[in-house]
Design a protein around this nucleic acid. Structure first.
Ligand code: FES
Ligand code: FES
Lengths: 153, 153
DNA sequence: TCTCATGTAACTTTTATAGTTACATGATTG
DNA sequence: CAATCATGTAACTATAAAAGTTACATGAGA
């Protein structure tokens, strides 16, 4: 299957939106991210349900952040996306009666759970504001966005 | 994509082989695992290159362990499989020049690396002999294998 | 020499994710 | 109110990774 990059995309979008002082349409976001507007809407829909962003229809509509970045961690975003599996490894369940299969799978699941817990904890430690300041430090000021050039025709 | 279950399959195979006192053919292993012999051969090929198993062609040929289980950890097996990606999350690289993308991806990669390292360390702590004794404890003796019923016709 | 079993290449199937098309719905503006 | 803009969604296609399959070459015993 394709590799899941929703979290990366979501963070990318949120940080871009933070640099804008007006609602941004799905179309503009999509063209900046080299993808399709529906992909943006689907992803942002999940974030809206968790109160991370807001949407407005009609003229001058689009997406805006509904919380300051300082109140958001990677963990919040990850969970808001309704997270599919975190690990690409899984176990077979072909013979549920086989004791060997049971022992193998229990052991693997334990290790998998530990890794997921660690990753979630790491995510919880990183606020989006921290990410943003990394960007600002690199640019010595507000980030220049390719979005800014692309006003509606 | 489909979820990767090679490690689970490999462990399952090795533990079954450990209960047998003769070479086991790919066909028998495949039928026990409800899969195809070529899948077994592909997977075992990687393990052979790392000295974990041996193969013999011709009559009474098949696969045998070339090291005691006590000398093998999950980590050894995992690495022998030539491990694809461990995490199902990845990051986009659409605009390599975008500083926001860079900051996001560096941060994510850091967290991903930590999780992978933890998982590998966990794997390194579990020997296959430990897994085997879990099975023996559950069966109060050597495991009964569905393989044993299936002698060649 | 006959048969068994591995070794491999090349193909098909499966399935999760991304991307696309099409259209309904609601909001703003003039 | 009408025109337009933008979200909201369903339904479809495309892509890619893993598993499974077919076919055949190669080597080892019996
Ligand atoms: S995509 Fe990041 S600035 Fe345009
Ligand atoms: S598959 Fe484990 S005993 Fe048959």
């Amino acid at each position: 299957m394709r590799t899941n990059s929703q979290l990366s995309l979501a963070l990318h979008l949120l940080l871009h939106m933070a640099e804008m002082n007006e609602p941004v349409t799905s179309e503009r976001l999509a063209s900046a991210m080299n993808t399709n507007a529906v992909v943006i809407r689907r992803l942002m829909g999940g974030l809206r349900e968790r109160g991370i962003v807001q949407s407005r229809k009609g003229h001058h509509g689009g997406w805006t952040l509904s919380r300051p970045l300082a109140e958001l961690t990677l963990r919040d975003v990850y969970l808001a996306l309704g997270a599919g599996p975190l690990l690409s490894l899984t176990h077979r369940t072909q013979n549920p009666d086989c004791l060997i299969e049971q022992a193998v799978n229990e052991t693997l699941d334990g290790a998998f759970r530990d890794a997921e817990a660690l990753l979630l904890a790491r995510f919880g430690e990183v606020s989006l504001a921290a990410l943003q300041s990394r960007v600002h430090a690199a640019t010595r000021g507000p980030a220049h966005l390719c979005l800014e050039g692309k006003t509606a025709p």
